[in-house]
Design a protein around this nucleic acid. Structure first.
Lengths: 230, 230
DNA sequence: CCTTAAAACGAACGTTCGTGCTATATTGCC
DNA sequence: GGCAATATAGCACGAACGTTCGTTTTAAGG
């Protein structure tokens, strides 16, 4: 049985696993989850193929673990900091601003991990595809709830369909990531930011300032809702 | 020397090549341009691996030929019919409507070929990536020119930046294709269509009707500008 | 019909893929 | 410090990859 003793025994293994996934996530964002090859990953981490392989048991499980590792990073780098802003419009704006930072500043080497993974697996049924779809639904829900909160706070017109606005914001994000990755053109983010602001402005019941996203990144109070850690 | 005789000799070869590419394009839209394997393509077309391979000389050349075959289909199914509408706003609207039809009705089995190919090759330098980028630039230019034409015809406000609007429309298209492929949710197209119409409406100087895209698909006059054939 | 070039084939190459086995190091608890 | 569990390595496998080669089949022109 799994006692406290045997749990402590896992310490070293978990550390390696984490280290492997750290590399895997960035490799996969560039080469794709399928191009993420076990041999390549082994040489990149300085391990033997079989030694590394033993941590996961199958390629599919490695891919799933990689996807979840990417999710953790996304939560840490995007969701959590955005949730420090207060509920409603401020949080919605932070979510957008930070997302663009996230895509632009190469949190993952190959741009947004999930944009790449979605496109790669969308016509390939299986556990990996399902997991990616669930995670993206999570993200769209985060956006939608931020909008609904803003509506309840009287900051966004109640007439707008939250799900529609969430779709549009996400599309602009995906589109910006797409253009940036393909053309290496930073203007893509400027354009997307402009479009999102315009979209908010035309639906808001309160004035929307056009300060840059990176300005005033202090005033970090206690974090808001707690987000998953896995 | 290449006489009329030797040119006639190529007839059969060209026919096979075309037949192969027909299959290749759909296979690639599902499995990706890299997942498009020569062995698989051979068995799918009922040819031998080597016989098929001889038509292209290398995998990269096969990929390039496949990309260009997809471009031809895109021109035939989207650009050409849209160019039958008259210059300006009508053509712009047609371009959007037909694009959504194109993505929704599986002109390519795996959704928009170029959305998939872009995501796959955007972090993979080489001739294939470059070709894809050029083709997507072409598409953005088609959108931009339609907007500029509409502005010159006094149908769209001169204050809007054509390149910005083209970016936003494209982003909504990419976003709709993304959501549809990942969630198999047709609402994605409804939402994107709504967003595009709203975007046009808020920038147009003339009223924009909300008739469905598929309505009134007759009145086909002579085609407008001639588009490439390769 | 006969010639001849193009087209298609079958077999094999060297690699790399994912995945098993078996053995050796390493680790953490008594 | 010894012991059991875990972590890693080494090696081999069958399959599939892109590619090459020499041969055979096909079809168009004189």
């Amino acid at each position: 049985m799994k006692t406290a003793a045997s749990k402590a025994r896992q310490a070293k293994g978990d550390r390696s696993r984490l280290a492997i996934l750290e590399v895997a996530v960035h490799l996969a964002s560039v080469e794709g989850l399928d191009g993420l090859t076990i041999g390549r990953l082994a040489s990149e981490t300085g391990m033997s193929k079989s030694g590394l392989f033993a941590h996961f048991g199958s390629k599919e499980d490695l891919q799933l673990a990689t996807v979840d590792a990417a999710r953790s990073i996304f939560i840490e780098k995007v969701i959590r900091p955005a949730f420090e802003a207060k509920k409603g419009l401020p949080r919605l704006r932070r979510l957008c601003e930070i997302w663009f930072d996230y895509a632009q500043n190469h949190v993952f080497q190959g741009g947004c991990f999930f944009a790449a993974a979605s496109a790669e697996f969308d016509s390939r049924p299986g556990r990996v595809r399902d997991r990616i779809a669930v995670i993206m639904k999570e993200w769209l829900e985060v956006l939608r709830w931020a909008i609904v909160d803003a509506q309840e706070a009287g900051q966004i017109d109640l007439k707008v369909e939250a799900i529609q606005l969430a779709f549009e914001i996400n599309a602009l994000e995906i589109g910006a990531n797409w253009a940036f990755q393909l053309f290496r053109d930073k203007h893509a983010f400027t354009r997307a930011r402009t479009a999102v602001l315009e979209r908010l402005r035309s639906n808001a019941t309160v004035p929307i300032s056009t300060r840059t996203a990176t300005a005033k990144r202090r005033a970090r109070g206690s974090s808001g809702t707690v987000w998953g850690k896995s």
